[in-house]
Design a protein around this nucleic acid. Structure first.
Lengths: 124, 124
DNA sequence: CTTAGTGTTATATCTGTCTATTACACTATA
DNA sequence: TATAGTGTAATAGACAGATATAACACTAAG
């Protein structure tokens, strides 16, 4: 997996796992890959995986069962809340970022609609 | 100044200076505040300012004149290009981020237009 | 020529992140 | 009860970023 070298790897792994849960690639209650396996898959050290997982456990997004594995929370509302939170953060970051560049609200709307149209066209 | 502790400070200072140039708070050819003054203003070490500035000099966004000061480039097209680049990066990051969360193009448009409307309302 | 103001460079130290490695603890099952 | 698979913890080392501090180099102005 490719990482942004400006952001801690353990943090990017957290975000990766968040996305797996939100998009259903990891379902509620599902057993996650073993830490050593994740380390191989993401080509990082086990301790780095552990750092990410321990924070997910603290947040109760993951339940850890010693000797058995790590399991995605069964609390679907928690996953939904997380999705909403991450979406809002994306919107806020974009909005604040553009505003700090002196882009007006109307221009933001224009830029976004044009950008999305171009993406739709390019993917066809 | 407040910094995001997940991103190097020198890098955030670069972005800060970019914004100053793009919004005209720093004009083309203008003399910038002294490095020691910037360090005080942003409450960071001189070396950290220097790290940011040296990259800006490498990029030719800033011209350094020993004993006289640092000066914003007089090349206005370079500043315009930078603004376009930063806007595109913001759009891309938001779009990619939301898409990875499983949000459709139409939903992205809806979220953004709703978000902008709310911001307009709240600021009044 | 001196001095104040500027950028530049260097050293030592601290902290956070990441790695490699080893060991320990628990669970399921053959 | 042995063993394979799992999570957990601890140590040591490397590296990047940030700090404090000092010194050096150049410029402008008195």
């Amino acid at each position: 997996m490719k990482f942004d070298d400006k952001i801690p790897i353990y943090y990017q792994i957290k975000e990766y796992i968040y996305r797996q849960m939100i998009t259903g690639k990891l379902e509620p209650g599902e057993k996650m890959p073993a830490v050593r396996q994740l380390a191989v898959d993401l080509t990082v050290n086990v301790n780095t995986i552990q750092r990410a997982l321990s924070e997910l456990v603290t947040e109760k997004m993951v339940e850890s069962k010693r000797g058995r594995g790590n399991f995605v929370t069964e609390d679907t509302s928690k996953i939904k809340e997380l999705k909403d939170k991450l979406i809002m953060e994306q919107l806020k970051q974009m909005y604040d970022g553009l505003q700090k560049l002196g882009v007006s609200d109307q221009e933001i709307l224009d830029y976004v609609s044009r950008y999305v149209k171009e993406q739709e066209r390019d993917q066809k």
